[in-house]
């Protein structure tokens, strides 16, 4: 029974998360608290963990809640349930894309979408910068944050360094510089 509920809830969470990331935190919280799987306070902790671990926040929280409620089988089931809508929807969209992408109207549509997508990436940079600077306490911390961000921008954006190495260097710098 618990497994069916886990599956249904995380399938629903996966299905209603459009645009990625933080938009769906409210939905996850609503589901988890409604079913009594976690208190709101525990949920805040899960979000904190999701932020410091790699991977999409949807999968992070699915794995965590699934493990808490149903052990390792629960964790695997919830993680699978949250990505299943993606698998279904992307299969459909991808098939349509392959069939129609040469059509003139579709080409016009993508010529319109590409600059918009670029603008959305720039917006994400602005929003992440604002959120991070709000979170970092004190002047030295903000200064180091700005310098590391600028260095990563130059390294990855201009010099085409490997983003994985840049992230590792940033983690070491964080260890040395932040208090």
């Amino acid at each position: 029974m618990i497994f069916w509920q886990l599956f249904a809830s995380f399938f629903k969470i996966g299905l209603f998360t459009i645009g990625g990331g933080y938009a769906m935190l409210a939905l996850i919280q609503q589901e988890i608290v409604r079913l009594g799987w976690m208190t709101p306070q525990e949920f805040v902790d899960v979000v904190g963990i999701a932020e410091v671990t790699p991977g999409p926040i949807a999968i992070n929280s699915a794995t965590f809640v699934g493990f808490r409620t149903g052990g390792i089988p629960g964790a695997l089931l919830a993680s699978f349930a949250v990505v299943l809508p993606s698998l279904l929807c992307v299969s459909v969209v991808s098939r349509m894309w392959n069939r129609y992408k040469e059509a003139r109207l579709v080409q016009f549509m993508f010529a319109g979408i590409r600059p918009v997508a670029a603008g959305l990436v720039a917006a994400a940079a602005v929003l992440i910068a604002l959120a991070t600077f709000r979170y970092v306490q004190g002047f030295p911390g903000k200064l180091w944050t700005g310098l590391i961000a600028a260095g990563c921008f130059y390294g990855v954006g201009v010099k085409k360094w490997n983003p994985i190495k840049v992230l590792m260097i940033a983690a070491v710098l964080g260890l040395l510089l932040f208090r």
């Binding site: 992440i128 944050t145 700005g146 990563c152 840049v166 992230l167 940033a170």
Partner: peptide
């Protein structure tokens, strides 16, 4: 220690997303 290392990663993420915007933008705009 985990939290400090993560402060560095958070700062780097700003730069990574800005780099993505820069590279994509130069090509598309």
């Amino acid at each position: 220690y985990v939290m400090r290392a993560f402060s560095g990663v958070k700062a780097a993420v700003i730069g990574l997303v800005a780099a993505a915007a820069w590279r994509v933008g130069r090509q598309v705009v």
